[in-house]
Amino acid sequence: MRQSEAPTAPRLLDRKLLFVTGKGGVGKTAVSAALALLAASQGKRTLVCELDAKGDLASSFECGPTRFEPRLVAPNLWAMSMDTEASLRQYLALQLKLPRGQYVAPLARMLDFVASAAPGVREIVTVGKLCWEVRERHYDMVVVDGVASGHIIGQLAAPQAVNRLVRVGPVRNQTGWVLDILSDRSTTGVLAVATPEEMPVMETMELVDRLAQETTVGLAGVIVNRVLPELFGTREEEAFDALSEPAVAGSLSEALGGTVTPLLEAARLMVRTRRSRAAHVERLRDFLGPSVPLLYVPYLFLRSYGLRATHQVSAAIAAELES
């Protein structure tokens, strides 16, 4: 946590409900899995929930497919996938006291209806389920591997929309406590993930604005994922340039018994790519200001993704939170 931050701002892992979002392809699932693993390793009973059923969460933990019923994937850590139909069934049984099983046929039709027509209902069933887990204190922390930044506003604003559209009835009554949990900044927050590239950074800035304007949910922080390493300081870069001079590179090649040109080329590629990306990170940092926690997760040079990568991202986040 930064010095400049207001003392009242809750620490990232002290929140009970975190929605992880970002543009497609920035590593939302990897960050969600890592964050949940970190919380669990600190002794919190943690639930991590994948909202789109792509199965990436299961591969982050190298476990079998996740389902609506949470499964233990690590000590203190349960993983599940959202299933609107199962969620609605649970909602009907628990919240509206409808007996289980009796309405399966109309439910299937109901769901078509929910999915395709009624604005906000699919969202409220999803968000409602997550808030319910928080309200019932089944877990100390719920991490949501959320929908992309383009969709999350609609999801988080759904309770308000439903409140506006549905004037009476049990759903309206339900939205009250859901809104309370979502709006409480010490309980709930959005964690935006970006990579240091133009579009992910732009989408993040847009998300931050819309979150403030259209929802009651607070921004818990921003993670910049896949940050490339800085190979050289300024003086070292001068040395690198000198090494690249044909005469020097030539004698280096001779000493190693083969050309070093591709090695120098690869270093140049890294330096230039990092530099062009740094501009985007800087823009993001200026935009967010000092009050929003901004964490950096390095690019992982790994042979494959899986539990090992999840542990490494988790360690990187832990180090950032301590600094």
Binding site: L92, L96, P106, L107, F113, G169, P170, V171
Partner: peptide
């Protein structure tokens, strides 16, 4: 179709259903 309306009413309230119906 009665069970459908029963559930839908129960969840959304009949007023909202009517609003939606009008639109559709």
């Amino acid at each position: 179709s009665r069970p459908f309306y029963y559930v839908a009413d129960k969840i959304l309230g009949s007023q909202f259903l009517q609003d939606i119906a009008e639109f559709f």
